[in-house]
Amino acid sequence: MRTTWHDHDWQLIHEAPQAPTLHMALDEALTDAVASGQRPPTLRIWEWASPAVVIGRFQSLRNEVDSDAAQHHGIEVVRRISGGGAMFIVPGNTITYSLYAPTSLVEGLTFQESYALMDSWVLEALGELGIRAWYQPLNDITSEAGKIGGAAQTRRGGAVLHHVTMAYDIDAAKMLQVLRIGREKLSDKGTQSAAKRVDPLRSQTGLPREAVIARMVDTFRRLHGLADDRLHDDELAHAQKLVRDKFGTMPWLLDVP
């Protein structure tokens, strides 16, 4: 049966900065915890401990990333469990969050509708900050001034993972050194420059990153209800094991070479 936001007891996790591989593992561990009923539906705000390129589940490492340039700049490359495109992360430059929900929340919806539903609260929060933002199918959050962020979903068992990275600030020059962004990809985007496609929240709001996040959390809490929680010790241990066995290993990174 289809459920609504208010049928669930939403929990907030917002921990101190964590390593990129641990973030990848937490998404798998917490999605599975919600699928098995061990954890109520949860919003997790990410803090990054170090710079990273996060590639999509099905992206070719070699086609997407200049690994020499990444190494030169001290940027770790990791692969996530959801599809979608590469993200360039510098701590403090992005706002990243995950939603872990039972699939009943998106039951009967098209993929397009489920992306829009899962981020309706974010569009509302951005509106409260004076940014008219909307969903640009398949999986972009955009505004008049340009793209703000990208979303990805994957389903595991009875749970859906929906995670989003929005640009707060951007080092476009470094991004273009590390990511290989082909012309074919940009062919129907109507612009020549990958850097120009993104307009970050810093310039659009004039607010500190923490203030934007605080607004997002407040809006979620008002619309859907939200209780403060923490990452539990057994969840952290499970995620750390996943880092050792999967997300921190070359076979996983090179699964699509």
Binding site: F58, G85, A152, K185
Partner: peptide, 27 residues
């Protein structure tokens, strides 16, 4: 209306070899 679909492959005696699909799609 979709995502980037990428194929890397070799050709061996007129047949596809080492086929690798990749891209920013969802599957």
């Amino acid at each position: 209306g979709g995502k980037l679909v990428v194929i890397d492959l070799d050709v061996r005696e007129d047949h596809l070899a080492h086929v690798q699909l990749s891209g920013d799609f969802f599957l």
